[in-house]
Simulated scan of single mutants.
Amino acid sequence: MQIQIKMYTDIPYGPHERNVLDVYIAEQEPSPGPSPVLVFFHGGGYIRGGKADVHRYAFVHQCLSAGISVVSCNYRFIQSDPYPAPMEDGTRALQFVRHMAPEWGLDPDRIASAGASAGGHLALWNALRGDLARPDSDDPIERQSSAVCGFLGFITQVSKDQRFYEGRYHGPHIQPNLQLFYGLSDPEERHRPEILALAEQASAIHYMSASAPPAFMVYTLPLDGPTIPADAPVGEVIHHPVHGYVLQQAYTRFGIPYTLRHGADPERPGELLAFLQRCFTRD
């Protein structure tokens, strides 16, 4: 089987200047039909980063070589567009890819999502929410489903609610950029009841249900137990595998396939690709 990569760059998927994505279409020769696709969202704390970051991940090239197309997306930053703007961009990007699938030779029924750090949380938030289509919308893109058949996260947070750390972390750090994320003028505003309610809505794990897609989470730090060391620097706190561990407990309760890899139990060669292929072949 020969794979040819057709590339489209800076394709607008929405009205904002950061609503652009790059498409890498894996065309098989002879073509067996439309290819599955992985939609990737970069990290950067919701304040930096870009779609070119996808090239840092070796598994992306493995996907293309295996006939899985890849789409990498930018989204709005919270300095000017706080929550829910980045999450809404994630929704629209997924809907846009499904809308364009016939033209691009992609399979609209085999779309998985992935992301790193903040982009992982954005993608997970959408993956757990499922289909956010608006059937009555005048916009044909909004009428498309945003559901995915699998999720792959790298050093991914599962919550934007500081209360997530209660009983799991006793150090001094608050999540970086939390004030920007919610558009607050004072960090102490996060304790207001309406902001606490918003924090639940903004947290991916809040939407865990029996309809969640299979998930695979990868972390670089080791998981030594169900807590985060109090002396951990803030970058380790927000990227700690405890996030993946807590989500794993929820997945286990629902009996949904879930794999957690971390520094003490790293991913096996070819494991990520095999996971995606299973997602694309599930009934």
Results as ranks from 00 to 15, higher is better:
residue 1 M to S: 14
residue 1 M to W: 13
residue 1 M to F: 11
residue 5 I to W: 01
residue 7 M to W: 12
residue 8 Y to S: 15
residue 8 Y to W: 14
residue 13 Y to S: 07
residue 17 E to H: 14
residue 21 L to A: 06
residue 22 D to E: 11
residue 22 D to V: 05
residue 30 P to E: 08
residue 33 G to F: 08
residue 35 S to Q: 07
residue 36 P to A: 05
residue 36 P to V: 07
residue 37 V to I: 05
residue 37 V to M: 00
residue 40 F to V: 04
residue 41 F to S: 02
residue 42 H to R: 02
residue 42 H to G: 03
residue 49 G to I: 03
residue 52 A to C: 14
residue 52 A to Y: 12
residue 55 H to W: 10
residue 56 R to Q: 14
residue 60 V to F: 06
residue 60 V to T: 08
residue 60 V to S: 10
residue 61 H to T: 11
residue 65 S to H: 13
residue 70 V to L: 07
residue 71 V to Y: 00
residue 73 C to R: 02
residue 73 C to F: 00
residue 75 Y to W: 07
residue 80 S to D: 15
residue 81 D to N: 14
residue 83 Y to A: 12
residue 84 P to K: 05
residue 84 P to V: 03
residue 86 P to F: 01
residue 86 P to Y: 02
residue 87 M to L: 13
residue 88 E to H: 13
residue 91 T to P: 04
residue 93 A to R: 00
residue 93 A to T: 03
residue 95 Q to W: 04
residue 95 Q to I: 02
residue 96 F to Q: 06
residue 97 V to A: 04
residue 97 V to K: 03
residue 98 R to F: 04
residue 98 R to K: 11
residue 99 H to Y: 14
residue 100 M to Q: 11
residue 102 P to S: 10
residue 105 G to D: 04
residue 106 L to M: 11
residue 106 L to Q: 06
residue 107 D to S: 07
residue 115 G to S: 07
residue 115 G to F: 00
residue 119 G to R: 01
residue 119 G to W: 00
residue 120 G to T: 03
residue 121 H to E: 03
residue 123 A to I: 02
residue 126 N to A: 07
residue 130 G to M: 04
residue 138 D to S: 14
residue 141 I to G: 10
residue 141 I to Q: 08
residue 142 E to P: 12
residue 142 E to G: 10
residue 145 S to C: 06
residue 146 S to C: 05
residue 154 F to L: 08
residue 157 Q to R: 14
residue 157 Q to N: 15
residue 158 V to D: 08
residue 158 V to P: 03
residue 162 Q to M: 14
residue 164 F to T: 01
residue 166 E to D: 15
residue 166 E to C: 14
residue 168 R to H: 09
residue 168 R to F: 08
residue 173 H to V: 09
residue 174 I to K: 15
residue 174 I to A: 15
residue 174 I to L: 15
residue 176 P to R: 03
residue 178 L to S: 15
residue 178 L to I: 15
residue 180 L to Q: 12
residue 186 D to Y: 12
residue 189 E to P: 13
residue 190 R to T: 09
residue 191 H to G: 14
residue 195 I to T: 12
residue 197 A to R: 09
residue 197 A to D: 11
residue 203 S to K: 02
residue 204 A to R: 01
residue 205 I to E: 05
residue 208 M to C: 10
residue 210 A to Y: 10
residue 210 A to K: 13
residue 213 P to A: 08
residue 216 F to G: 05
residue 218 V to K: 13
residue 221 L to D: 11
residue 222 P to L: 00
residue 222 P to G: 07
residue 227 T to I: 09
residue 228 I to N: 00
residue 234 V to C: 09
residue 241 P to E: 04
residue 242 V to Q: 05
residue 242 V to P: 02
residue 242 V to K: 02
residue 246 V to K: 09
residue 247 L to R: 04
residue 253 R to T: 13
residue 255 G to L: 06
residue 257 P to M: 03
residue 262 H to C: 12
residue 263 G to F: 00
residue 264 A to M: 09
residue 272 L to T: 11
residue 274 A to D: 12
residue 275 F to Y: 02
residue 278 R to H: 12
residue 283 D to R: 15
